[in-house]
Amino acid sequence: MKTQARIGRVAVVVAGLLVWELLTRFDLIDSDFVSTPIAVGVAFTEMLRNSEVLSALASTGGNILLAFIIGTVIGVIAGTVMGLSKTLWQAYSAPLLFLMSTPKSIFLPIFILLCGIGSTSAVVFGAFEAAVFVTINVAAGMALVEDRHMKVARAFKASWAQTILAVVLPSALPGIFTALWFGIRHAFIGVLIAELWASSDGVGGLIRVYAEQLHTDKTLALMLAVTFLAIIAGTIWNHLETRLTRWRQSSAAGAATTTATS
C-alpha cells in the first residue's frame, strides 16, 4: 500500500508534467506564458550556478529568519499574557482574530511608507504577519490547559514553577508548536510578499523582475524551488510535531472527549 501510494503520487506528478509539456509542444497553450517543464528544468540547473539568484536566496533567507525571530518573540510574549488573563483574552481576541483572517497585504503600503522600499520593510512586515499568528496560537494553546490537571498540581502541592513545567507547558505544547509553525510560515510569506510587491532585491523581487522580462522559465524555476523548500520544511515540521506530542495520539479518544466537554 505504502509503495503503491508512493508510485501513485509520482505518477500523478509525472502525468501533470507530461500534460504540460504536450500542451505546449502542440501549441495548445502558449509556451511564452507557461514555459515548458524541460525549459524550467534547464533554467533550474542554470540557476544553481547563478550568483544573482544565490545572493537573493541568501538575503531573503536572512530576512525570513530575522522576521521569524522578532515576530515569534513578540507573539509568544503577547500570546502568553493573553492566555493567562481571561479579561485580556475577552477584550482583544475578537480584534486579533479579525486581523488574522484579514489579508495582511492591505497593510503593506503603510510599512512601505514608514520603512521604505527594501529589506527593512520586508523584515518588519514579515515579523508583523508572524506575530499575529503566533499570538493567537500561543493564547489558544494556553486555553488547552485543563482545570482538572491544574487541580492535580494544587492538590499535590506543586510550586508555581513546577505547575508551569509539569502541567502548563506540556498542555500548551501542541499549541506552541502550531504557533511556531505559523511563525515560520508567515514570516516566510510576509517577507516574500513584501519583496514581490515593492523591492527589486531578494527572491520576491527577482521573481517580479524575471516575470516582467517574460523569462517564464526562470520565474517558474525560482518559484518551484521556493515551493519545494516550503513543502520540505512543512513535512519535516509535521513529523517533528507528531514525535514530540506523541502522547496525544495514544489518548486521542480521551482528548477528544475532554475538549468536547470543556
Binding site: V152, A155, K157, A166, P170, L173, W247, S251
Partner: peptide, 18 residues
C-alpha cells in the same frame, strides 16, 4: 492542600496524559 496530610483520588482520574 498538603498531599502528605491528605491526598486526593479524583473522580475522573486526572492523570497527566503526557
Amino acid at each position: 492542600p498538603d498531599p502528605r496530610r491528605a491526598a486526593f483520588v479524583f473522580q475522573d482520574y486526572s492523570l497527566l496524559p503526557w
